[in-house]
Simulated assay, not measured.
Amino acid sequence: MKDSPEYKAELQDLQRELVLLQQDVVKNNKRLLIIFEGRDAAGKGGAIRHFTRHLNPRGMRVIAMPKPTEKETGQWFFQRYFLGLPNPGEIIFFDRSWYNRAVVEPVMGFCTPAQYEEFMGQVNNIEKMLIDDGIQIIKFWFSINRTAQQNRFEARKSDVLKQWKLSTVDALAQEKWDEFTHFKEKMFERTHTLSSPWVIVNGNDKAKARLESIRYVLAKSDYEGKGQIGTRLHPDPKLVRPFDLDYLVAKRKSDKL
């Protein structure tokens, strides 16, 4: 699909709408924060590149935090992330975010149980304060099945252009699949709120995931000239959907039977 003329035309139309969205953000001093979380190799980075390809770099930033320094480990956990919050007239893309502490860190043993609980007890209130202050937050979780993840890891190993993507976490992603699932579900259950919901993106097909996640942002945003390009703005609910807490609760009950 990604090499078809139809896909390329559709992508460009959606990117034109993103330019209109950014122009409105700049003109009206809006602040938009889009968080990209998900399984390793689920397509977060590629999606961000397609979001940002034609945006004005003066009105947007991509934040991909490295491992914290010794000084940063002694700070309040959220402190370094706050430096990346959007200024008026700016769109920020978080390539992973403070939610590292909700999933990756407890699975990999990078934080203590007390640090994990402290984060989980604070994050909803912090996001509410940011939203109350006028920041629009969209939280994506890019999902992928186990086979697709393994295939993408193998492709990275054999392609020198992709080897930089491999990490220690990648090496253990398959081995710790169930642990990641456990903490992912706990994160959804405790941090999915009406004002800051989690949005699940099916990342098994990268091309479709890119199109539909762009559509979601456009559908959830108000901006001058919206829809004038003429392409579909509402995402396919089979590929992009809000997290369903009722489904998770029912699933856990059935697992106990």
Rank of each mutant, 00 (worst) to 15 (best):
M1D: 02
K2E: 14
K2L: 15
D3L: 11
P5N: 08
E6V: 13
Y7T: 05
K8F: 11
A9W: 06
D13H: 04
L14Y: 05
Q15S: 10
Q15E: 07
Q15N: 10
L18A: 05
D24K: 01
D24G: 00
N28K: 10
N29G: 06
K30L: 15
K30D: 07
I34W: 14
I34L: 11
I35A: 01
F36M: 13
A42P: 04
G45C: 14
G46V: 02
A47I: 00
I48W: 13
I48G: 02
I48V: 04
R49F: 13
H50Q: 15
F51H: 02
R53K: 15
H54Y: 12
L55V: 10
N56L: 11
R58W: 04
G59W: 01
G59D: 09
G59L: 03
M60E: 15
I63F: 15
M65S: 01
M65G: 08
T69L: 03
E70V: 14
E72T: 02
E72Y: 04
W76T: 07
W76P: 01
Q79C: 09
Q79K: 07
R80Q: 14
Y81T: 06
L83I: 03
L83Y: 11
L83D: 08
L85W: 10
N87G: 04
P88S: 12
P88T: 03
G89R: 03
I91C: 06
I92Y: 00
I92K: 00
F93I: 00
F93A: 02
F94M: 15
R96C: 04
W98P: 02
Y99E: 06
N100C: 01
R101K: 07
V103N: 00
V104P: 05
E105F: 09
M108D: 02
Y116G: 08
E118A: 12
F119C: 11
M120Y: 08
G121K: 03
N125L: 09
M129S: 06
L130S: 06
L130R: 08
I135H: 12
I135Q: 12
Q136C: 08
Q136M: 09
Q136P: 00
I137R: 15
I138M: 06
K139V: 04
K139W: 13
F140V: 09
N145R: 13
R146E: 07
R146C: 12
A148F: 04
Q149G: 03
R152K: 10
R152L: 08
F153V: 01
F153L: 14
E154A: 09
A155T: 06
A155V: 01
S158N: 09
D159N: 08
Q163I: 02
L166Y: 04
L166K: 03
D170H: 05
A171V: 09
A173L: 07
E175L: 07
E175Q: 15
D178S: 05
T181Y: 11
H182N: 05
F183C: 03
F183R: 12
E185G: 07
S196R: 05
S196D: 08
I200Y: 11
I200P: 05
N202C: 09
N204D: 14
K206C: 06
K208G: 04
L211K: 14
I214W: 09
I214D: 15
V217M: 01
V217Y: 09
A219W: 15
K220W: 01
G225W: 00
K226F: 01
G227H: 14
Q228C: 08
I229S: 10
G230F: 09
R232H: 10
L233G: 07
P235R: 11
L239A: 05
P242W: 07
P242Q: 11
Y247S: 04
K251C: 14
D255G: 03
